[in-house]
C-alpha cells in the first residue's frame, strides 16, 4: 500500500467515523461511538503496517512538536479569556459558570499532562528501567482518568423527577430554568 492510498483511506474512515459518532450521540447511544473509535484505531494501525513507504520522519516529528506547543498555548490563552468572560456574565445564565469551570479544568489538565509527559520522556530517555516508567505512567493515566470522571461525572447536580428539579448531592448552582419534563 502506498502513502497516498493510506491517507485516502484514513480520510474516508474519519468521515465515516464522525458521521457514526454524531448520529449515535444524537440518539443518546454512547456504546457505538466507543466501539467505532476502537475499530477505526485498530483498522488504521493494521493498515499503517501495510504501508511500505516511510509515512513520517524526523522533520514531521519536529513540526508536530512545534505545532503541538503552539496549539496548547493558543488553546490555553483562548480558554482563559473565555473563562473570565463567562465568569463575568454568569449572572445572566448559571450555565456559564459550569462552562467556565470546565474550561479551567481543561486548561489545568492539559498543562499538568504536558508537564508530566515532558518529564516522563526526559526520564525514560536516560533510564535503564523503561518498563517500570511505562507501567507507572499507565497507572498514573488510569488514576487521572478516574479522578477526572469523578470530578466531571455530575455527582452534584439537579435531576428531573416527576416534573420537578430535585437536588442530587450538593450542587453549587441554582436549578435549571428549563422546564422539567
Amino acid at each position: 500500500m502506498t502513502n497516498k492510498q493510506f491517507f485516502a483511506i484514513r480520510i474516508a474512515l474519519i468521515i465515516i467515523l464522525s458521521s457514526v459518532v454524531s448520529v449515535a450521540v444524537n440518539n443518546k447511544n454512547y456504546i457505538i461511538p466507543i466501539i467505532a473509535m476502537a475499530l477505526a484505531t485498530l483498522g488504521l494501525l493494521f493498515l499503517k503496517k501495510k504501508v511500505k513507504e516511510v509515512t513520517e520522519d524526523e522533520r514531521d516529528y519536529a513540526l508536530a512538536g512545534h505545532a503541538a506547543r503552539w496549539t496548547i498555548t493558543a488553546y490555553c490563552y483562548t480558554a482563559v479569556c473565555a473563562m473570565f468572560i463567562l465568569l463575568g456574565i454568569k449572572d445572566t445564565n448559571p450555565a456559564y459558570e459550569i462552562i467556565a469551570n470546565t474550561l479551567s479544568f481543561s486548561i489545568f489538565g492539559i498543562l499538568i499532562a504536558y508537564s508530566i509527559i515532558f518529564k516522563f520522556y526526559q526520564k525514560i530517555q536516560l533510564s535503564k528501567h523503561k518498563k517500570w516508567y511505562i507501567a507507572i505512567g499507565a497507572v498514573l493515566i488510569v488514576l487521572f482518568m478516574l479522578v477526572s470522571l469523578r470530578v466531571l461525572s455530575g455527582e452534584d447536580n439537579w435531576i428531573c423527577q416527576n416534573g420537578q428539579w430535585v437536588k442530587h448531592g450538593q450542587p453549587d448552582f441554582p436549578a435549571p430554568t428549563a422546564p422539567c419534563r
Partner: peptide
C-alpha cells in the same frame, strides 16, 4: 535517496533547498 535515508521525499526536497537541518542520525 529518501528510501536509502529512511525519510519522506519531501524531507530530501527541504534538505536540498537548505530549508531543514537534519539530525546527526539523518
Amino acid at each position: 535517496l529518501a528510501n536509502l535515508a529512511e525519510v519522506r521525499r519531501e524531507t530530501i526536497v527541504f534538505l536540498e533547498q537548505g530549508k531543514y537541518n537534519p539530525s546527526l542520525n539523518l
